[in-house]
């Protein structure tokens, strides 16, 4: 049953693959240093960008029914130690919040752990693991503007008491319950009432240092946060355009990171928050060749 499903998925993916653009080559040009946050640095202009077509994901549920992003412009440079990718795409709305009905803009790159295993371009497969570096605008906003707690989202909200808060906010010292931040709350008993944090969920981090997440995957639904997070990412939204820089070490000591030989593969995914893009509701690319000028 399982093998049949797997074959079916491969067959479907094959059928879709033929509609997509394949076989682009992204050359990572050698430079002196990588500007990790500055997408306007002239260093990025030393290499010609490649426009990679992205398609709405409609192979597995949940599907993206309509495309709102046609392509991502990719530029890659390296200084022999670090490799950087500048990913640019048009997006008329800057979506940096999440809530019951709010979704944020995101982008990710995907590298095969071992290109020779030729993993499926979409999240890999058993015995064909992939390494994913994923930038999320909501995380970057936490870093740039502070964690978006309830009070930041709803400045006029009121709550009488958070029973388990360490600092009760009883009105003395001018602090009320709503002024108790989740960082304070999560220090003592309150932790029991922040289930995601209590369970150590990587989504529930309130003092994030970098807006990227490094993951491994071996098929749909298997995305797993890596133990060691050593990539970086930074995004800028200007003039209806996102420019996101993702960097990582070329020779990483982390065994969960993909090896980066001179020639490997790379794929991309991008999410438009305004159109409720999240999880599999994304735009994806096929594998492209990545050639690293060393």
């Amino acid at each position: 049953m399982k093998t049949k499903n797997c074959l079916l998925i491969i067959a479907i993916i094959g059928a879709f693959a033929s509609n997509a653009q394949t076989g682009l080559t992204i050359k990572s040009g050698k430079v002196d240093s990588i500007p990790k946050k500055n997408s306007k640095s002239s260093i990025w202009t030393k290499v010609a960008p490649v426009s990679v077509t992205v398609l709405p994901q409609n192979i597995t549920s949940p599907k993206l029914q309509k495309s709102t992003i046609p392509s991502v412009k990719v530029t890659s440079i390296n200084d022999g130690i670090t490799i950087g990718f500048l990913l640019e795409w048009t997006d008329s709305t800057k979506d940096i919040f999440v809530d019951a009905d709010k979704f944020c803009d995101q982008v990710a790159i995907q590298l095969p752990m071992d290109a020779a295993q030729n993993p499926i371009f979409m999240m890999g497969n058993k015995n064909g693991r992939v390494h994913i570096i994923h930038w999320k605008s909501v995380w970057q906003n936490d870093i740039e503007n502070g964690f978006r707690d309830v009070k930041e989202a709803y400045p006029n909200y009121w709550t009488d008491v958070y029973p388990m808060a360490e600092r009760q906010g009883d009105g003395s010292m001018g602090k009320y319950a709503r002024d108790v931040s989740v960082k304070d709350y999560s220090k003592g008993q309150g932790k029991n009432f922040i289930p995601g944090f209590y369970a150590g969920n990587p989504m529930s981090i309130f003092d994030r240092k970098d807006p990227s997440e490094e993951c491994i995957a071996e098929g749909f639904g298997t995305l797993t946060t890596q133990e060691t997070q050593n990539a970086t990412a930074w995004g800028t939204w200007e003039n209806n355009k996102w420019s996101v820089i993702i960097t990582r070490a070329i020779n990483s000591s982390d065994p969960q990171d993909a090896a980066l030989p001179e020639k490997t593969k790379i794929a991309f995914a991008v999410w438009n928050g305004a159109d409720e893009n999240v999880s599999g509701r994304k735009h994806y690319s096929m594998w492209n060749d990545l050639v690293i000028e060393k």
Binding site: D99, V138, P195, G196, N201, S204
Partner: peptide, 11 residues
Amino acid sequence: TFFNMVTRVSE
């Protein structure tokens, strides 16, 4: 099921 905007996961 409910989305928790602080932990950013559902409960």
